[in-house]
């Protein structure tokens, strides 16, 4: 009886098992550049204990991590570093943008601070707050686990979904024209600091 099942039933199950394994063994890469990093450390410490959710193994090598937690503002000098670390992480990988600064630039609307990391790298979960409380970060991890269970696939097909390739509105040609100081005809992947 079991042998007569069509292939796709088994594949779906494999996805579910893989997602279940992945969601409870997230290894975060703490990209903590500012004050939010302190809350990130508090989340890892004993009172809040991120280990209860299987995400306590903070790895400072991107090769060993699969969850990038960007905690803090990212200046223009740091953005190439962030992108490089993101590219060095292995699939499957996810990104949490923690705090107002990482998500939008926060109060630092200046020449030196990138106005949201989602303009240049993909982000899965945003955590509002300045800084977000550890409970909020834990909620983000729980939400991410749900998301992994819901849409994850063994082969990572969900990552090549065309909907997810779109840059955020601010970085699309029509949105980009409205940004202060940006020349509309500038190519999207032009030279840094042209």
């Amino acid at each position: 009886m079991a042998l007569e099942l069509p292939d796709n039933v088994r594949i779906t199950k494999l996805d579910a098992i893989a997602n279940w394994c992945r969601k409870y063994s997230l290894w975060p890469m703490p990209f903590a550049t500012a004050c939010c990093g302190i809350e990130l450390m508090a989340t890892g410490a004993s009172r809040n204990d991120i280990a209860r959710f299987g995400a306590e193994v903070f790895r400072f090598s991107p090769r060993q991590a699969d969850l990038m937690i960007v905690a803090g503002r990212v200046p223009i000098k740091m953005m190439p570093v962030l992108q490089r670390i993101w590219l060095q992480m292995h699939e499957p990988k996810w990104c949490i943008s923690m705090g107002a600064c990482a998500s939008t630039g926060g109060v630092f609307d200046t020449y030196a601070v990138v106005q949201g990391i989602d303009r240049f790298i993909p982000v899965d979960i945003y955590v509002p707050g300045c800084p977000p409380r550890p409970e909020q970060l834990i909620q983000a991890i729980v939400d991410l686990q749900e998301k992994i269970q819901r849409e994850g696939t063994v082969m990572g097909r969900e990552f090549v979904d065309p909907e997810r390739q779109k840059p955020p509105l601010a970085m699309r040609p029509e949105g980009r024209a409205g940004l202060p100081g940006v020349i509309a005809s500038q190519p999207l992947d032009g030279e840094h600091f042209a």
Binding site: I76, T110, A112, R164
Partner: peptide, 26 residues
């Protein structure tokens, strides 16, 4: 030279000038 008074606070677009990494490329 950004601390000059005639340099705009939000810059001349330097902060928006990075390659965009899409999900599938990474």
């Amino acid at each position: 030279h950004p601390l000059r008074k005639d340099y705009p606070l939000q810059g001349l677009g330097e902060r928006n000038n990075f390659p965009v990494i899409r999900r599938a490329e990474s």
